[in-house]
Design a protein around this nucleic acid. Structure first.
Lengths: 247, 247
DNA sequence: CGCCGGTTTGATTAAAGTCAAACGATGTGG
DNA sequence: CCACATCGTTTGACTTTAATCAAACCGGCG
């Protein structure tokens, strides 16, 4: 499912050569798993790749679905999350340009993936991707590193969620997002556009919407950030924000 | 370091043939990464393996140490954790017989590993192990699956820690430990011996010692468990305990 | 016996959740 | 063009949960 879902546009399988051209000129090559691999094996990778577009709010796949595809994000933001029996949602992560979607997946997806913004992805057939992995150990090695990094990040986040105040969790989230954005497109601008809602941030930080809102207000009254509209954050004191996040 | 640490007994490198015999007869083979691999490549694995003993409370390695070794636990319980600036500790996991220690490690260890009980481990030289991985992709594949599983588990645990009451977290911990023990040595006994202290459990569940103790009392007054001494838990109503853990 | 560490229990406090209301931007229909 | 409804956000009042501080308890050991 996922691609057949109402708001999800599926651009269809391109001819291999056309797809290869796309891969060759892809701007996220240096960021994603394709990077080192695609150089040597462009055709094989292009052969199992198709490009996919998703509109903000649409679902790529749902926890429990048959896991037929892996993805890399080429544009926009994707969130993946688990829903609890209580109806609560835990967002496990936000994926940006170059990130791989499909780690820690077995036969079924163990989480739901939704488009936070309109976004583009490269879709790989899982079976074919796995065949490619067993043929080219470098590819599996790359992915192995990706899982390892993800594991480290989740472990760090767990520590933060368990022991830090709302204000610090928000500070950590803002600096994380700021850093990622700076890495993807460096700028001297100090304002960040947060594509996600307060609810999304709350579900990511294990807080209520109200607690997130109050944390924003707290940072604002300390002149660490300024808020235009809720999605537009100006960082007035990056150092203080980072200190808060790390302490 | 680690092996030179005060309470850590190091049994020394065995002759390759002796080590191979040990590996061949090893009771955790079926559980650990050695399993499928050691059958075909016993000598290579034995060649980089040495057996290590650790007394309860001793430190195998500390976060930030040069990461020179990987391990598998052959006996006893090992915990790995991160220490915060505030002095607080977050235990990331307990490792039992067959578990691999050293996932998500780069040049330096990203966590501290301590012996919860007296324990035995197989120690692999990291560099040699990595060379073995690049020679035999099956080995990397096995480890890849291990990291993936670990990632899934941590993600599940994060959800629980973020949203569940102390009582439920404890119930989840007890059922997890019960299940693992049942898997390792099935028995019709309904009592579990917890090798870790209340502080350890607290640091694992992101709670205070007092909160853990109160959670135990709550389960006791509901006749779900009975406590002999603090380390001896009789499960009176497994179903209820599991329900509580899952809800 | 008294000390000591780990554990339990009690009283108080702090943080975040919940419920409720107000706010502000956006979009629709009269 | 304005009244109105809507959705996401903010703010306030109150409640719940677990942290903190403090004291009692218990078993082992010198």
């Amino acid at each position: 499912m996922g691609l057949e879902a109402p708001h999800c546009l599926f651009q269809g399988l391109l001819a291999d050569t056309a797809q290869r051209k796309l891969c060759e000129s892809c701007r996220v090559k240096g960021l994603s798993i394709c990077g080192g691999f695609a150089v040597d094996h462009a055709e094989e990778l292009a052969g199992i790749t198709q490009r996919v577009s998703c509109t903000a709010g649409s679902t790529l796949f749902t926890e429990g679905d048959q896991a037929d595809y892996f993805y890399t994000v080429t544009n926009g933001v994707v969130q993946f999350s688990k829903y609890l029996l209580s109806g609560r949602r835990q967002i496990l992560g936000f994926l940006l340009k170059g990130d791989f979607l499909g780690l820690a997946v077995q036969d079924q997806y163990s989480y739901t993936a939704e488009a936070t913004t309109n976004c583009n992805l490269c879709q790989f057939n899982k079976k074919q991707f796995e065949r490619l992995m067993s043929t080219y150990p470098t590819l599996e090695h790359t992915l192995f590193n990706a899982v390892s990094n993800e594991l480290m990040e989740v472990e760090n986040r767990m520590v933060a969620l368990g022991h830090q105040l709302a204000e610090k969790r928000l500070a950590a989230f803002l600096t994380w997002y700021w850093d990622r954005m700076q890495y993807l497109s460096p700028t001297s601008e100090t304002s960040v556009t947060l594509p996600m809602t307060r609810r999304d941030i709350a579900d990511y930080l294990c807080l209520s919407i109200e607690a997130v809102s109050r944390a924003f207000t707290k940072l604002r009254t300390q002149n660490i950030i300024a808020l235009g509209d809720p999605h537009n954050v100006r960082i007035l004191n990056l150092e203080k924000l980072q200190d808060l996040a790390e302490s």
